[in-house]
C-alpha cells in the first residue's frame, strides 16, 4: 500500500492505496463519491471522467498514486459549497442535455475542462472535446447546446465579475 495525499473537491484526503488502484476505485470505493460512474473501465466511454489539476482524465485508467499531491475535481465538486449549481450544470438542465444521466457527470467535467481553456469554443471544438464521452440517450445535440450556452453565460459572468465559482478556482488548481 502506498500513502497519498489528494485534494479532492477542496478537501485534503490522506489515504493508503494499492499501487495499481485506479482513481475511479479510489473515489468511488474509498471516498464513497459515487457521482463518478463506471461504464467500461477501458477508457472508451468517458463516464468516469474527473479533473486532475483541471485537466480531464479517465479515472478508470488513471493510477491513484499519480493523484498524490494533486487536485482532483469530481462532479460533487462542481457546484458551490452552498449547493448552488454551477453555470454548466444549470445549462445542462435547461437544454435537456441529459436523459438517463449516467454519462452526465463525465460529460460535465470534460466540458468544464474545455471551457476553462477555450472560453468561446466552436461547435466542432465542443464535439471534439467531448468525443471521449459516449452518450447513448441524447444524440449529443442538446449537450453541445448546453456547453455553448454555458460558454456564453460564463463569458458574460466573467466580463462582469472576476471568476468566483469554486469549481473554476479548483479547476485551475
Amino acid at each position: 500500500m502506498q500513502a497519498i495525499k489528494v485534494n479532492v473537491n477542496g478537501d485534503v484526503r490522506d489515504a493508503m492505496v494499492e499501487p495499481d488502484e485506479s482513481l475511479l476505485q479510489f473515489v468511488r470505493e474509498r471516498l464513497q463519491l459515487t457521482g463518478t460512474k463506471e461504464g467500461c473501465s477501458t477508457g472508451y466511454c468517458g463516464a468516469c471522467t474527473v479533473l486532475v489539476d483541471g485537466e480531464p482524465v479517465n479515472a478508470c485508467l488513471f493510477f491513484a498514486v499519480d493523484a498524490d499531491r494533486r487536485h482532483v475535481t469530481t462532479v460533487e465538486g462542481l457546484s458551490g459549497s452552498d449547493g448552488t449549481l454551477a453555470t454548466l450544470q444549470r445549462c445542462f438542465i435547461e437544454a435537456a442535455a441529459l436523459q438517463c444521466g449516467f454519462c452526465t457527470p463525465g460529460m460535465l467535467l470534460a466540458a468544464a475542462a474545455l471551457l476553462e481553456r477555450t472560453p468561446s469554443p466552436s461547435e466542432h471544438e465542443v464535439r471534439a472535446a467531448l468525443s471521449g464521452n459516449i452518450c447513448r440517450c441524447t444524440g449529443y445535440q442538446p449537450i453541445i447546446k448546453a456547453v455553448q450556452s454555458a460558454a456564453q453565460a460564463l463569458r458574460r459572468e466573467g466580463a462582469s465579475a472576476p471568476p468566483r465559482t469554486p469549481q473554476r478556482v479548483q479547476a485551475r488548481a
Partner: peptide, 9 residues
C-alpha cells in the same frame, strides 16, 4: 490520439 482525457496522460 484518443480523446482529451487520454491526451492528458
Amino acid at each position: 490520439l484518443g480523446a482529451a482525457q487520454l491526451q492528458t496522460v
